[in-house]
Amino acid sequence: MKALKNLVTGDGRTHIASKLMRESLVDRRTVATTASEQEFRILPDVTLVGLGGHSIFDRGKEALVPLANELAAIRQHHKLVLGVGGGTRVRHTVAIALDLGLPTGGIAQLVGAMEEANAVFLNALLAKHGSIVMQREHFWELPLYLEGGMLPIVISIPPYHFWEPPPENGPLPAHGSDFGLFIHAEVLGMERIIFVKDEDGLYDADPKSHENARFIRHIKLDELLANMPQELILDRQLFEAWRTARHVRKVQIVNGLRRGELTRALAGEPCGTVIEK
């Protein structure tokens, strides 16, 4: 009987009494009323560490094995989730997909499959230290892994799959691995992401092709958005999404080829590039 008292009728429909009844959830005024002062943070004490596919995995054991050893030591002192990119295999597979004329959503599916291969490689190196590969979208298993002392490894590409929105230009999926890791961290309420690349951090131009590229050691998000470099080491969509994000406060880029730099970053030392909101 109590449940019946919460039902509202009179317009030809039956509603459950709430501030959203009779409202369209795509109406801007309605959406504006749903803002909350504080969202619940699921894993606030966890740091997401992203290992670049092209910058780290493609370099083979010379880059990956020492980094795996460093991660094995780090995990004793920090709660971590590791994300992996796909690297050159993604580029090769996408080239084939474009040649075959596959749609954007089909290409997005293939990218995730290539990243899963790198997750398996990293898991083989870290298995004796308690690593485990998380299956796509099994996010609710992460707390169980972490509480059990395991080191979860996730793929980076966001799980749009066949639902990848059509991009503005060409058929390539607009949402890349860096963006996917950022969304992963934001949804789970993490404050910090560390991207492990093969460069010292963020520059105002690509240092591989511009000798006079200026290194950016520390910058605020608003300042970066106001003067965005043409060439970026991270996905442009990451910074656009960060503009309205609620949880991620710091993004750090470190050089994974410099031994110990990831350890220093996790300890809070000012290395690489730090971007703060």
Rank of each mutant, 00 (worst) to 15 (best):
S177K: 00
N118D: 06
V196F: 07
L67W: 06
G130L: 03
Q252S: 11
V248E: 01
E186S: 12
T263P: 00
Q135K: 02
H77N: 14
G180F: 10
R192V: 07
V133L: 12
M228E: 09
D222W: 11
R75T: 09
I96W: 14
H129N: 15
L266S: 03
Q135L: 05
L262Y: 08
T93L: 05
G87I: 11
P167A: 14
V8W: 09
E116P: 04
A174F: 13
D235E: 10
L7E: 08
V251K: 06
L51G: 07
L7M: 15
L238P: 01
Y145R: 15
R246H: 15
K19Y: 10
K220F: 07
I107F: 01
T34D: 01
E231D: 08
T273M: 01
K220Y: 11
V94I: 15
P143Q: 05
P159Y: 04
R22L: 10
A32K: 12
H15N: 04
R192G: 04
L126F: 07
G148H: 11
I157R: 01
V81Q: 05
W242G: 08
F195S: 04
R22I: 12
G101Y: 08
T93Y: 06
G85T: 05
F215M: 03
I16K: 11
W242I: 08
I16Y: 14
I219F: 00
E115T: 08
L4I: 05
F195L: 01
G256D: 00
F121T: 12
V254P: 12
A97Y: 05
F162D: 11
I216C: 06
L142H: 03
D178R: 04
M114R: 13
N69G: 11
A32W: 08
I253D: 03
A72I: 03
L225F: 07
A241S: 15
R258Y: 07
H138V: 09
K61T: 02
L221T: 00
L181T: 09
V120C: 08
L110S: 10
A32N: 12
I155P: 02
R264F: 04
H161T: 13
G106Y: 00
I153D: 08
A117Y: 12
T9R: 10
S24C: 15
R13F: 10
R243E: 09
R259A: 10
R136I: 08
I183S: 11
E116I: 02
V49Y: 05
L257F: 09
G85Y: 00
L110P: 05
H77W: 02
L125W: 03
R264H: 06
I193A: 03
P143K: 02
P152C: 10
P165K: 12
A17M: 07
T273A: 04
H54G: 13
E137S: 14
G87C: 05
I74V: 12
D206V: 01
H184E: 02
N227V: 01
K128E: 13
T273L: 02
